[in-house]
C-alpha cells in the first residue's frame, strides 16, 4: 500500500501532522475526531456495562432510512417552492450545513424509533434482546437502502451529504463541526464526572439502584441521548456502518486492563482520543485511505494486542496460568506426605 521508497517522507509528514503543523484543516479534523473518540470512549463504557453496545449499532443502521427520507423531504420542499428543474438542482445544493442538519434530524428520529421498536419487542413479546436488535437493525437498514434508491434517482449525481453519512467523510469536517464535537465531548465528560456514582450503580444493578431511590429512568434516558448524540456525530466522521466501533472497541480494550469502573471510563476515553489522533494523522499522510476505517482499525489493533498480552485477562496470561496450575497439580499430588497419593494421579 505504501511504496517503500516514500517511507521516509511519509514518516516526516506524519510527524508534522502529529505536531499540529499539518495545516489548519488537518488540525480541525484532528481535534474533532480526537474529541469524538474521547466522548465515545466515555459514554460507550457505560453502554457496554449495561450490555447495550449493539443497540447503538441498531440506532446507526436504522438512521439510514431517516437520512434518506429527510433528503427526499428536503427535495420535495424545494420542488414545492419552484419549478421541477429547480427542485432537482435545489436538492443538490441547499448549502452543506443546512443540508446536514436536516439529515441528522432525520437520522435521529429514525434511530430513536428503532430503539423504541427493540424495546417494545423485548418487553411485550417473548423475543430476546439479541434477536430483536438484529431483526430491527437489519430490516430498517433494508428500508433505508430502498428509500435511498429513490433519493439517488431524485438527486441525480450529487449526494455528498448522503454518502458522507453512510461511509463517513472526516476530511470534510468544518470548524463548526469541530466546535460541535468539543461541545459534545465536554457534555460527555461533565455527564460522566458529575453522575459517575449513579451511572455506576445503574450499570451494575439497576434493580438495586431503583430500590435505593435513584431516578433510574431519567439516568437511562440521559445516557441513551448521549449515546445517540455520539453516534450521530460519529456518523459524519466514520460513517454509520462503523460508528459503533468507536463506542465498543476502546471500552472492550480498556476492560482487558482494568476492572474498576472509574479507571475503565478514563482509559477508554483516552484510548478513543488516541485512536482518533493516530487514525486521522495516518490517513492524512497515506494515499487514498479512508479515515473512518483507519481509526477503527487502529482501535482494533490496540484491542488485539491487549487481548493477547494484557497481564491478567489476556489470552497468553490465561494460558500461562493454566499451564502453571497443571504443573503445580502434578507436583502437589506427587509430594510425599499427601495422604493416599503417589504416582497414581499423574499417569494420565
Amino acid at each position: 500500500m505504501i511504496g517503500p521508497a516514500s517511507t521516509d517522507g511519509t514518516l516526516a509528514r506524519w510527524f508534522e501532522v502529529l505536531t499540529l503543523s499539518g495545516g489548519y484543516n488537518t488540525n480541525v479534523v484532528l481535534f474533532g475526531v480526537a474529541l469524538l473518540g474521547l466522548a465515545a470512549g466515555a459514554v460507550g463504557s457505560f453502554a457496554m456495562l449495561k450490555k447495550q453496545s449493539l443497540v447503538a449499532d441498531a440506532f446507526a443502521h436504522a438512521s439510514l432510512v431517516g437520512v434518506a427520507v429527510a433528503f427526499l423531504v428536503q427535495a420535495w420542499f424545494h420542488s414545492w417552492s419552484g419549478s421541477p428543474e429547480a427542485a432537482l438542482a435545489g436538492a443538490a445544493r441547499p448549502g452543506p450545513e443546512r443540508n446536514m442538519v436536516v439529515l441528522l434530524v432525520g437520522a435521529g428520529i429514525a434511530g430513536a424509533a428503532a430503539v423504541a421498536a427493540i424495546e417494545f419487542l423485548v418487553r411485550k413479546t417473548r423475543l430476546r434482546a439479541d434477536t430483536a436488535t438484529a431483526a430491527v437493525s437489519s430490516a430498517s437498514f433494508g428500508a433505508g437502502i430502498a428509500t435511498l434508491s429513490i433519493a439517488r434517482r431524485v438527486s441525480g449525481a450529487d449526494q455528498a451529504g448522503l454518502d458522507s453519512l453512510i461511509f463517513g467523510a472526516a476530511s470534510s469536517m468544518t470548524r463548526a463541526d469541530a466546535y460541535a464535537m468539543a461541545a459534545l465531548a465536554l457534555i460527555a465528560a461533565l455527564f460522566t464526572a458529575v453522575l459517575f456514582k449513579p451511572l455506576r450503580a445503574v450499570a451494575f444493578n439497576d434493580r438495586f439502584a431503583r430500590t435505593s431511590g435513584l431516578p433510574v429512568n431519567a439516568i437511562d434516558i440521559a445516557l441513551g441521548a448521549l449515546v445517540a448524540a455520539v453516534t450521530l456525530a460519529g456518523m459524519q466522521a466514520v460513517g454509520m456502518l462503523l460508528v459503533v466501533a468507536l463506542l465498543i472497541t476502546p471500552c472492550a480494550t480498556a476492560r482487558l486492563w482494568t476492572r474498576a469502573v472509574g479507571p475503565l471510563v478514563a482509559t477508554s476515553a483516552a484510548l478513543g482520543a488516541t485512536c482518533g489522533v493516530l487514525g486521522v494523522s495516518l490517513s492524512r499522510v497515506l494515499p487514498s485511505v479512508p479515515t473512518g476505517a483507519v481509526v477503527v482499525l487502529i482501535a482494533a489493533a490496540a484491542f488485539v494486542v491487549s487481548a493477547l498480552f494484557a497481564p491478567e485477562r489476556g489470552l497468553l496470561a490465561g494460558l500461562r496460568r493454566e499451564r502453571r496450575m497443571r504443573a503445580a497439580v502434578l507436583v502437589a499430588l506427587r509430594a510425599p506426605g499427601d495422604p493416599g497419593v503417589n504416582s497414581g494421579g499423574a499417569e494420565r
Partner: peptide
C-alpha cells in the same frame, strides 16, 4: 471463551474491525 470478553463486545469488535478492513 479465552479472553473472557463479553459476547456483545466481542461481536461488535470483530465485525466492525473486519468491515473496516474491507473498506480499507
Amino acid at each position: 471463551r479465552y479472553a473472557r470478553v463479553e459476547p456483545t463486545a466481542a461481536i461488535g469488535v470483530v465485525f466492525t474491525t473486519l468491515f473496516a478492513l474491507g473498506v480499507l
